[in-house]
């Protein structure tokens, strides 16, 4: 695999809710090992874009491909494709009736049909990596928000996905827990995990991104290296957006 191999190819994607055009003729590719950060005002369609990539939403035009294979909402091929796309949402979405270990091992055991010892071993290793080895037998209700999100990341990682989609995974967290979760994501980026990340944490975005995409009004307004985007954005809309994150007396 070369650095240039595309994992995701989005071509002329259009997504509407009723007559509301949310994403309009959007094209975008993500290469192996690349970390793409999506930024944009609330309601501009960042979550919707990630949901389309995972086939959770029907689209009205264009296509999303994973390794050249079309991701199509409602098709049975979707079940195979989704195994290769890890997704973590903003809300704590662990399965509340299962222990951490069960949450993490359910899909590899039932979906991928892998060997239990092997899966348990990998689960322990990954939980250790995010500092939660001692929580394997805890239930989600016994965890803090930050711990839950780290488990959710592990639950996706254990599928050995080709790409991880992270949708504002720290937005619902207390400030002091944001760090522990974002550090895990930074580690993944260092380890070469391909990711698309939606976040409102600008410092984190700058640190983690290989490429920043600024979305507004359903289209890509600006696309830059992080140094460029955060320090000398080209478009007026991006400049205005970034201003909302700085304070001056």
């Amino acid at each position: 695999m070369t650095m240039e191999e595309h994992i995701i190819d989005i071509e002329h994607l259009t997504k509407k809710f009723g007559d509301n055009v949310i994403i309009s003729d959007l094209s975008l590719s993500v290469s192996q090992g690349e970390v793409v950060v999506l930024i944009g005002p609330s309601g501009c369609g960042k979550s919707t874009l990630l949901r389309c990539i995972n086939g959770l939403e029907p689209v009205q035009g264009g296509s999303v491909k994973l390794h050249g294979e079309p991701v199509e909402h409602g098709k049975s091929s979707l079940y195979n494709i989704r195994q290769k796309i890890g997704m973590v949402f903003q809300s704590y979405d662990l399965f509340p009736h299962m222990t951490v270990m069960k949450n993490v091992t359910l899909a590899p055991l039932k979906v991928q049909g892998r060997n239990k010892d092997e899966v348990t071993g990998q689960a322990m290793e990954l939980l250790g990596r995010v500092g939660l080895a001692d929580k394997a037998d805890a239930y989600p209700s016994e965890l803090s928000g930050g711990q839950k999100q780290r488990v959710a990341i592990v639950r996706s990682l254990i599928m050995n996905p080709d790409i991880m989609l992270l949708d504002e995974i720290t937005a619902a967290l207390d400030p002091e827990m944001v760090h522990e979760v974002l550090n895990v994501v930074l580690d993944l980026a260092k380890g070469g995990t391909t990711m698309m990340i939606v976040t409102h944490e600008m410092a984190f975005a700058e640190a983690v991104a290989d490429r920043v995409i600024f979305l507004d009004g359903g289209v890509i307004v600006e696309e830059d290296a992080p140094e460029v985007f955060f320090h000398s954005p080209k478009t007026e809309r991006a400049q205005r957006f970034l201003k909302t994150f700085t304070y001056s007396k």
Partner: peptide, 20 residues
């Protein structure tokens, strides 16, 4: 989100209902 997390892990409809 319980449905969507299950589906995004690749669970089939039947597995989604049975396990989650």
């Amino acid at each position: 989100h319980q449905f969507e997390s299950g589906l995004s892990l690749g669970l089939s409809r039947v597995q989604l209902y049975v396990y989650i």
